[in-house]
Design a binder for these strands. Structure first.
Lengths: 177, 177
DNA sequence: GCAGCTTGTTGAATTCCATTCAACAGGATA
DNA sequence: TATCCTGTTGAATGGAATTCAACAAGCTGC
């Protein structure tokens, strides 16, 4: 019992740090948020972070997981839509978090934890998109390439913001054929 | 006369540093190449770099320019090809430099010089692609979206390496319609 | 109810960056 | 010959992530 109580405390504190990191990483960026800043915002000493996380990348992974599950429930609660509309929704919805997407891509070569998170995330996204396109009656032999192109396009839209008009045109063009 | 001689020397030395930086940035990465390392490889003290460049980002821009003009002449010397083949060529040819592409994307929010270089580069690439697609007889109303999608797809292929097979399938799918 | 282990927490290093500063050397200039 | 301009440098500076050794309690077995 006591042990369980302890572990609850530990997880709560960890979650608190993740909550703070989530705001800072998203609003100011991962690189711009130093461990010191994160720590002082969370009300602890810098090295305390290292009691709960191996390194800064592990904090990022925790933030990514938190953010992903939040977004995922929003997505699953979405009403019926055409694939193009869903794509546009995703592109727009991920925009708030585009800084993090860039950070993941830039760190995945150096950080194994981020690399494996990234792989899992792509596998998940592509699986969902594949299903979506199948249900929309896209020719099966076109689906694999289209899945990749769509994922790349969403990433591109996040990295290079465009006016709503063009985003819509692009999403429509993608699923038109 | 003396003045001209001096400026030649200056440019030669600068080019020497760029040549060293080009190798290091491409083979080991921008972040992994410290100014100290760059300097010692070039046979000079770390702070000497700052006599020729404002900061590390400016060194990167010089490297990018050097690399771009080298690639551009290769591209222009290419024999006749279908747009899909050209796309594949570009994707494969840029692979050696994919680390730099990632670095540009991750630094463009923080560094004005890199940001303007990036904008210029995209404007140039998109213009060339647009021309290519026009000549291939793509329906004019589809071209703008297709240009963006193609650029995003090439960036995606650089960030997420795929087997040659799939790259080819994706490039073909892009220009099929 | 006390000795000792475990879990957190911390201040103070350590190391590695990019970047700056002040001094210096040597050729060009007057 | 005296001075200036162009390069070059050794030695800071400041900030980053991360580590280390010490300390504080609470819990555990006796």
């Amino acid at each position: 019992m006591a042990r369980i109580k302890r572990e609850q405390d530990r997880d709560e504190k960890r979650d608190e740090i993740v909550a703070v990191a989530r705001v800072l990483f998203i609003e100011e960026g991962y690189e711009a948020t130093s461990i010191s800043r994160l720590a002082s915002t969370a009300g602890v000493a810098p090295n305390t972070i290292y009691w709960y996380f191996k390194d800064k990348d592990e904090v990022l992974v925790a933030v990514l997981d938190a953010e992903l599950s939040a977004r995922m429930s929003e997505y699953l609660a979405l009403p019926a839509m055409s694939p193009a509309e869903r794509l546009l929704w995703v592109a727009n919805n991920l925009e708030r978090v585009s800084r993090l997407v860039g950070t993941v891509h830039s760190r995945l070569a150096q950080s194994p934890v981020i690399n494996t998170w990234h792989e899992r995330f792509h596998a998940l996204s592509e699986e969902m998109l594949r299903l979506e396109l199948q249900q929309a009656g896209i020719a099966p032999n076109k689906i694999e390439a289209l899945v990749k192109i769509s994922v790349f396009t969403i990433e591109g839209l996040l990295a290079h913001p465009l006016p709503e008009e063009q985003k819509r045109a692009i999403c429509n063009a993608l699923v038109a054929n």
